[in-house]
Amino acid sequence: MTSEVMASLKKDYIYNLMLKGKREDGRAFDEYRKITVQTNIIDKAEGSAKVCIGDTQVLVGVKLQVGAPFPDAPDEGVIITNLEMNPLASPDFEAGPPKEDAIEMARVTDRGIRESGAIDLNKLCITEGEEVWIVFIDVHVLNDDGNLQDASSLGAIAALMTTKIPASREGKGEDMMMPIKDIPVGVTLVDIGGELMVDPGLAEETVADSKLTIASNKDGSISAMQKTGEGMLTQEKLLKAVDIACAKAEEIREKYLLNI
């Protein structure tokens, strides 16, 4: 309800700003808020990262366990991604099992990592058909000020890049770093009254007609996409969004991930 009330009050305001080429916080349409990525902040986790985009805060922890592979991929490790919309992060969140928003966001994050081949899953095989490493990526939302999706994607890959596989602890040989092959970055755009804006703030996200997340890889190819919301997108707008997203992803990768 809170968000609905805000939406009706803010929609006109944000729309009118858009007509003047402006955004609520003075950013350009293709400008992200300030991003910070801190890695290795939870010692107990095999890999971790805290990502802030503006006031949005997300903490991602990676844990590894030895388990059985899926029968259709006996020589591959397993990725399991979960996202918690913790009630401490927003007055709109409630405790309990993940709702559709959380599930969707976790699955889009998962697809970005999985489909880009970011993790070399074959190297996570211990004994074919019997034992493989299971990678648990747990995303904890700490503060929701919009664009949880990008924070979650960014946090997931950053945490994975710092993940050390605890092989000696489990008696499976020597410890090794997570075999990373690619660095996918998710970029979310919203369509507000026909204009595309990256990194929506909470209000922008609430009033947006539709939201589009595009995860792209080092070589500029696309590994995952998802449209959410009831708005429609034209073909031209979609192609424009892909161009913006790939360029932004490249920037973010360069600035925040390659130095990890």
Partner: peptide, 25 residues
């Protein structure tokens, strides 16, 4: 899509270049 070609559902996984995406659309 609607009959006017406006896109109302879009998901993707796998690997596509920008050019391929354009043609796929």
């Amino acid at each position: 899509m609607t009959q006017d070609g406006e896109i109302s559902l879009l998901q993707m996984d796998g690997n596509l270049t920008k050019e391929e995406f354009k043609r796929a659309l």
